[in-house]
Design a binder for these strands. Structure first.
Lengths: 198, 198
DNA sequence: CAGTTAATGCGACGGATGTTGCGTTAAGAT
DNA sequence: ATCTTAACGCAACATCCGTCGCATTAACTG
């Protein structure tokens, strides 16, 4: 993609330029926010020439997509706590953290996704992957006999996590760690009593 | 705000200009999408001069905020169907409609909210108002004895509606009317069995 | 070590975006 | 009917944004 990771010349300078630019993006994002992010600003701060940034990343959104890719952990799996409520609560803790940290790369890429199809697609893939990996917490709960077989994993995950995105990103209201955990528990309870059958 | 509704000279020409510009915004939004929306484009299509649009609305986001205000119904109340599940399903039907219609002013204002504080604040107020008005469906359910007293109205509404925003706006995946209704029923069921106590 | 060539640096350009000063129009007042 | 004055139209301007051609650097090759 826009990443230069597998380029034909991944040598020292190219890698150094990418690291410098990515660091500058994060710093500018922290100082000026998404709408204050400009290629000129990033280039100036990083010490890399404007033209180079334009050529390698095209747009501000391209920079953010690359930053998201840089931070994504390919080996990520949901933590295992021993209970569905605990697993979902840990998921929500991570999500809340990603959305409230400053600067939040996730929120910035969400903003970017409304402007360029590339960012939208990158974010979509990122989330599809995360939710697919997360489905195992429901599978494990079924195997433990904690919840009925045939429980709709996707709906469980949506009920648990969607309120965080909605309230923190769209409604722009704070959410305590306690409330985030409560949504996780609500979803687990609903699954337990058999509401979320396939 | 940016609206000219209560200006000192709300006469024929000013009102006509506003109507023309708003119509042009909607048309441009439908044709080019949010990221293709420009003041010059809107001005050209509406037949109003560039400078006039800049002076009255300042930015593209200002145009969208005004369009949202124009479409907002001050007398809105949630429909009354006789059951909590029915009321929530009707809410979700309206939300799904607002998010999937083309062009979706709601989605456009969400996009704008990531760029200017004015748009973010306008959207926040809009939603706070809507969720406050919607709380009555939970109150009614308690009065009918359908769900326990002390049920957390906000959590009921979030569980029912957040998955729609999350899946349609952020995950950018389609959602059938049936699934939207199912989330409404899930939230109602969870309330009924007492999971969502205050 | 010398040669090849991507990647970067550099300056200049064209177009888009937003602003300003001033003249013109028309809504509302007397 | 006349006057006043917001609101609008107009043109010129400054700035920002993205691109291009060409020179330079430095990573890889043999």
């Amino acid at each position: 993609m826009t990443s230069g990771e597998n380029a034909s010349r991944p040598g020292g300078r190219t890698a150094r330029v990418r690291a410098d630019v990515m660091a500058a993006v994060e710093a500018e994002l922290a100082e000026r926010g998404y709408d204050g992010l400009t290629i000129d600003g990033v280039a100036a701060r990083s010490g890399v020439h404007r033209t180079t940034v334009y050529r390698r990343w095209r747009t501000v959104d391209g920079l953010l997509v690359d930053l998201l890719a840089m931070g994504a952990d390919d080996n990520w799996t949901p933590a295992e706590t021993g209970s569905l409520a605990g697993d979902l609560a840990e998921l929500n803790r991570e999500i809340r953290s990603a959305l409230t940290v400053l600067p939040s790369v996730t929120v910035a890429v969400i903003a970017a996704s409304f402007r360029t199809p590339d960012a939208a697609e990158a974010l979509r893939r990122f989330w599809v992957d995360r939710y697919e990996r997360s489905a195992v917490v429901v599978t494990r709960a079924v195997e433990r006999g904690e919840i009925p077989a045939g429980t709709d994993a996707h709906r469980v995950l949506m009920l648990a996590t969607a309120p965080l995105y909605h309230q923190l990103v769209l409604l722009r209201q704070p959410m305590s760690a306690k409330l985030a955990t409560r949504y996780a528990h609500d979803a687990a309870e609903a699954a337990k009593v058999g509401i979320l059958h396939g």
